[in-house]
Write a protein that binds this DNA or RNA. Structure first.
Length: 400
DNA sequence: GTCAATTCACATGAAAGAGACCACGGTCTAGTG
DNA sequence: CTAGACCGTGGTCTCTTTCATGTGAATTGACGA
């Protein structure tokens, strides 16, 4: 690429041919002034947390709802307002899905302590020591502390409910401060998996966020699009289509916003003037594509080797691929590349992980006398497959 | 023909190990006045 | 005397292995009609 074309590219990029006024408004980081169709829920949250203004202990609160129903935004809005209103309230917000922050008890406590200004090393300390530091720090604040645990189901899945148990009982040992927990979860059935004692104390109050329907999504999109895009860019029907697609996906507003933003980016890059409905289709395709490629690219070598085995078997025309077949091919790949050979137990887990990520599709079936196994199918279409194969080639893992 | 027992090929769980990373405190060493 | 290098100990974290147990329907074989 020559100097000039780079320069040209950057300058058109900078000007962005006037599609976006403010792209940030379409990202999930953006917190809108008013949250449409969530007044009831926000009021409920506010009512539950309000006693903290008088220094009283607030009931622990559980917020449910599928992805993109505004749980996080609504909770954050209330909580931020509380913090602004009273200096006696300290908010600790933690997204439990964050990698390397909330993978373990230690890290989570350390991070929370850090939020309160305590310097804790990333590793090396005994966990009970970190507990102690955390307790003491909270008590020393002498405030109402509200701990918001977003995606709390992910936390329990990773490190169990022991931490939650300790947190719910922490008030018994606190002299000056009071701690309340706000748990946010996508998974309503999640409470069934935790210790009943934790469950009862955690869900003193519960608030459910129902999914948005298409009409509500349309309102939200219209509101945001007006601020994010330049006037007259969006052709009629685009918002409707976006809302309808997202409504199919359990009323996920985040998805809807992503679609709209991606459509805008596609139009911007193509140097066109208007967003048309077909751009939404393209956006949907591209979002899925990008996500999957990113997932594959971030996989460790062993996992890629397993994926490579599946691809190999598929391309050789095998139907009904099962774990044993994959392991057989995987063994060959490992020995020819000098890669360390994992046990079948581990490979079985890797296959399950690939399934979770949506790269392959598996189903556990029992074939009677011939055992029980996973039936494995490739999911990737032509485009994705060739891109994935490129990644495999980069890692020298493509058979032959 | 019927029905319970058997069997296969893994799935799934739990526990424990390996090796990397890190903090902390003690000891050693070289440099300084 | 002191700052910094170095070492040993004790801790966590992630990935993995080892051992153990579970699973569901095709197959088998005993039994009775």
């Amino acid at each position: 690429m020559g100097q000039l074309s780079l320069k040209e590219m950057f300058s058109t990029y900078k000007e962005g041919n006037g599609i976006f006024k403010n792209k940030d408004i379409l990202t999930s980081r953006y917190i809108p002034q008013t949250i449409a169709h969530r007044e009831d829920q926000i009021n409920q949250i506010a009512k539950t947390l309000a006693p903290s203004l008088r220094g009283e202990k607030v009931s622990n609160l559980f917020v449910f709802g599928t992805v993109g129903t505004g749980k996080t935004v609504s909770t954050n809005t209330v909580v931020k307002e509380l913090e602004k209103t009273s200096k006696k309230i300290k908010i600790l917000y933690m997204n439990c899905k964050m990698k390397n922050v909330s993978d373990t008890e230690y890290r989570l406590l350390a991070e929370l302590s850090r939020m309160m200004g305590e310097d804790i090393p990333y590793t090396g300390l005994p966990t009970d020591r970190v507990y102690q530091i955390f307790f003491e720090k909270i008590d020393s604040l002498g405030n109402s502390v509200i701990l918001v645990l977003d995606e709390i189901d992910a936390l329990v899945k990773k490190i169990g409910d022991g931490l939650l148990y300790n947190l719910t009982r922490i008030n018994e040992n606190l002299k000056k401060s009071k701690l309340s927990i706000v748990g946010i979860s996508n998974d309503i059935s999640f409470t069934e998996t935790i210790d009943p004692r934790v469950k009862s104390s955690l869900s003193e109050e519960e608030i459910v966020f129902p999914p948005y329907n298409a009409t509500q999504l349309k309102d939200i999109l219209t509101q945001r699009a007006g601020m994010a895009f330049s006037d007259g860019i969006i052709e009629p029907g685009v918002i409707q289509k976006c809302a309808a697609l997202a409504a199919q996906e359990h009323g996920d507003a985040r998805r809807a916003l992503d679609l709209l933003r991606m459509a805008g980016e596609i139009v911007e890059r193509a140097g066109e003037k208007n967003i048309k409905t077909e751009h939404i289709d393209k956006a949907e395709e591209k979002l899925d594509f990008d996500r999957l490629i990113e997932v594959v690219r971030s996989q460790p070598k062993q996992s890629l080797a397993v994926l490579s085995s599946v691809i190999r078997l598929t391309e050789d025309g095998h139907k009904n691929i099962q774990t044993g077949d994959v392991f057989y091919v995987y063994e060959k790949i490992c020995s020819s590349r000098g890669l360390k050979l994992l046990t079948q137990r581990r490979v079985s887990d890797l296959i399950a992980e690939l399934d979770m990520m949506g790269v392959i599709n598996t189903r556990v079936i029992s074939k009677g006398r011939y055992g029980r196994t996973r039936e494995i199918r490739m999911l990737l279409g032509e485009n994705l497959l060739s891109k994935v194969k490129k990644i495999l080639t980069e890692n020298d893992l493509l058979p032959n």
